[in-house]
Simulated scan of single mutants.
Amino acid sequence: MADDGLITIGALARACGLTASALRFYDDCGLLVPVRVDGATGYRYYSEAQVDRGVMIRRLRGIGMPLEVVAEILDGDGARAERLLDAHVSELARRAREAAVVARVIKEEIGAGVVLPAAVLSAAIEQVRAAAARSREIPVLAGVLVESSADSVTLTATDRYRLSTRAVVPVRPSGKAWSAVVDAGGLGGIGSWLQGLAEVSVRSAAGELVLTGGGSERRCAILEEAFPDYRAMLAGLAPVRTRMVVARDALLALLEDSAPIALVADRSGLSATRGGQFEYGSPRCRESQANEPQRIPASVTGADLEIAFSPRTLRPALVSAIGPEIMLDVAAADAPVVVRSATDGDLTTLVMPTAIANSK
């Protein structure tokens, strides 16, 4: 305290709950001007009576009152101050209601996940999950990888002999990218539910994939293991040497039993033989075990090729494919074969050819 009964800026700051820098600011604004300023040192000195004004300023600023309105309240009459306070509280309430609406919309968008056409998602699940492993020897291979990005949702499954992946374009993308490996068995039970919906919201939450639509939801367990890097597998495929576009039903008809099938592709088209003994690089049927070659409607481009398949790997890829014609891209008789619809590239499946040793 100064000798003339005035108090220092530090004492006033402590008394009214403000900082010294705030008091200097309010001095510059003319809201709380010191009684005296030492000309030599620049020290500010205040009266005890200014403590109440400092407290009032702190409280008004604490509720977001603009500086110019604070001055009107402090220096005007009581009725004017009440009107200004009521108007400010009403404005705060209005802004709070608007903020609550915006926050609710944002929370719904964040929590809702990605919105997909339900029938398309149902078809994609059935197409892809057929490639998931049936055994639990490697648990993650019994799952389907679901990846949500800004412009698509991609489903992928592989059992090491097949790999299927399909992208679905969302009706409304999610606000963030995420991925989860979902138990393929759990996905198998939601097809009929999805068929009854127009759209479905999909999100990953608390160890589950949550699908919401039509006022109900379905939950599928998420597997914690890391999914194989299938993109590296696709990027590492050798260049295509032979492309076959073949009637799907004709090829399916040759896969009705468990007998392996050999395909011979050349400039004349495609022929198939069932039930023989095959080996990589020369899968033609051997001796009397062979059936007669059968011609299949197809167009072939690229190098002549002989390749063999097991029905248990090729048939699911054909069943899940879209359209009447199938495209098979082959790099070699012992390399993964890319199977796609000839007209719709959304679904891609890799199928390993078979190597059945010739036996005498």
Rank of each mutant, 00 (worst) to 15 (best):
L270R: 07
S192Q: 14
G188L: 02
A132V: 03
I106N: 04
P228L: 14
V33Q: 15
E225N: 08
S135C: 02
G196Y: 07
D38W: 03
R162W: 07
L187A: 06
L318P: 09
M233H: 04
P283Y: 06
R162H: 11
A112T: 11
V264T: 14
A142C: 02
Y26Q: 08
I307D: 10
S122W: 01
I73G: 11
I356F: 13
L237G: 12
F227W: 03
A167N: 05
G236Q: 06
A355T: 13
L318G: 04
R166Q: 11
I110E: 13
S288E: 12
C220H: 00
V146T: 04
D266E: 06
V105S: 00
E108K: 00
R218S: 05
F278V: 09
R219T: 10
A40F: 02
M327K: 06
R340H: 11
A253I: 00
F25T: 06
V51M: 02
V101K: 09
M352G: 10
R286Y: 04
G62E: 06
K107Q: 07
A142I: 07
L251W: 06
G186W: 00
Q195H: 13
R274I: 07
E256L: 08
G275I: 07
R53L: 05
A238I: 05
S135A: 05
L145M: 14
V146M: 03
R136M: 01
E147G: 00
A150N: 04
A272L: 12
T158V: 12
D27N: 15
R218K: 07
A71D: 15
L234A: 11
R243W: 01
F309Q: 03
P293A: 12
S90C: 03
E147N: 04
L155N: 08
V140R: 12
T348Y: 02
I9K: 05
R58G: 13
A290H: 05
L251H: 02
E224V: 13
I125T: 02
G196D: 05
I125D: 03
